[in-house]
Simulated scan of single mutants.
Amino acid sequence: MNLIKVGQDAHGNAIVLNYVDYGQGDPVVLIHGWPLSGASWEYQLAELPLHGVRAIAYDRRGFGQSSRPWDGYDYDTLADDLKAVLDHLDLQNVTLVGFSMGGGEVARYMSRHQGARVSKVVFVSAIVPFMLKTDNNPSGVDKSVFDDMIENLGKDRFGFLQDFSKNFYGQGVLSHPVSQGVLDSFAMLAFPASPRATSQCVKAFGETDFRQDMGAIKVPTLFIYGGSDAIVPPATGAQAAAKLVPGAQLVAYDGEPHGLNITSKDRLNRDLLTFLNGQPVQSYFDQEEMSGNMPRRNYNNANEPVTR
């Protein structure tokens, strides 16, 4: 295991984060969603290093193989943990990729730490800018939804997470976008997490307002979301967030659920590499463009290929 110390708990015990670090090139730091771990980036960790990218993923405190302290599940602390990862590895020219809850770490890091070391950011199915429905955020989600999640986690965490995985991947009676193996993998990653961390993070991503943080993002930014996301409604998430970052690219994956890093892994990998290469990400996906070495076209805009 690769471990980075990020602090200590109330009893003086070290708090460490587990991470993996693959490939060589400009670094991409992948920040996972709730309630999983860095291992949920399996398909990105396997593909990106094949294209001259250094891919790094770590387990959030309380999840995966990282420490499980009682406290520290607020976004200020989580952004400080991200800073510790970047500082420990002395990364430069970093692209941060935040999935779902991980998007909050990206936004808070960019404001709290002035975007140090970061050259690009990507939000995938992210919970920014503000999930909670309030008088000045009418497109948000009712607080009762998050309260019910915490209550059900307390009653039957394992059963709740199993059911949640189906919504995560858009699995239904007539819709089967993922295998039973993928659902089992979700449970294998989610079940070992700290129960305390699992519930506290619901409160964090459900109630933290990132609207001011978004204004601190001054680097090229890409928002990707699933058009059928039942976890983070597009109007609550990416569609609202992109308006707060001038020049940001906004790309919808039509028909895709929240967990599009699995259900649309090839497209996501291609789009990440396209963005890393400084090119606009097209709004459609052409399977015929894909091959073993994942070739790319250059685009003037989202729909027009450049001919050479």
Rank of each mutant, 00 (worst) to 15 (best):
E47P: 04
H88E: 15
L96E: 00
D90K: 15
E47Q: 15
L96W: 08
M101S: 14
Y75Q: 08
P69G: 05
A55W: 12
R68Y: 07
N93C: 04
Y58A: 07
M101N: 13
S66K: 08
I56H: 00
E105P: 05
S67V: 11
T77G: 01
D59K: 02
G104T: 02
R61C: 03
E47C: 08
A57W: 03
G98N: 00
T95I: 06
D81H: 07
G64T: 03
Y58R: 00
A84G: 11
V53C: 06
G72Y: 15
P69Q: 06
D90H: 15
P49W: 00
S67W: 13
S100K: 07
L86F: 08
S66N: 11
E105R: 03
L91K: 13
D90N: 15
N93Q: 14
G103H: 13
V94K: 02
L96F: 04
D90C: 14
H88R: 15
G72I: 13
S66L: 13
H51Y: 15
A55V: 15
T77N: 08
E105A: 02
G103V: 11
D59Q: 07
D71R: 10
D76I: 12
Q44N: 09
A79P: 14
G52N: 11
D59C: 10
A46N: 12
G102W: 05
L96M: 06
G64Y: 01
R54W: 05
V97A: 01
Y75W: 12
D87M: 06
L86A: 04
G62V: 02
R61S: 07
V53W: 03
A46I: 03
V106S: 06
L50K: 15
N93T: 08
D59N: 07
V85Y: 04
D71L: 11
V106C: 10
G98Q: 00
D71Q: 10
S67I: 12
D81G: 07
D74C: 07
R68G: 03
G62R: 03
M101C: 09
V106W: 01
R54K: 10
T95N: 00
L50V: 04
H51S: 01
L50E: 09
V97R: 01
E105Y: 05
H51C: 04
D74I: 07
R68W: 08
L48H: 03
A84V: 09
E105C: 08
A57K: 00
W70H: 13
G62M: 02
Q65A: 12
A79V: 05
L45M: 15
E47S: 14
A55C: 11
V97F: 02
F63I: 00
L96C: 03
E105K: 00
K83R: 12
L50N: 11
L50Q: 11
F63W: 03
D74Y: 09
E47M: 13
A57I: 12
H88I: 01
E47R: 14
H51K: 09
A55K: 09
Y75V: 03
D90Q: 15
L45F: 04
G72H: 14
G52T: 09
R54Q: 09
D59M: 10
G102S: 09
Q65R: 13
I56Q: 01
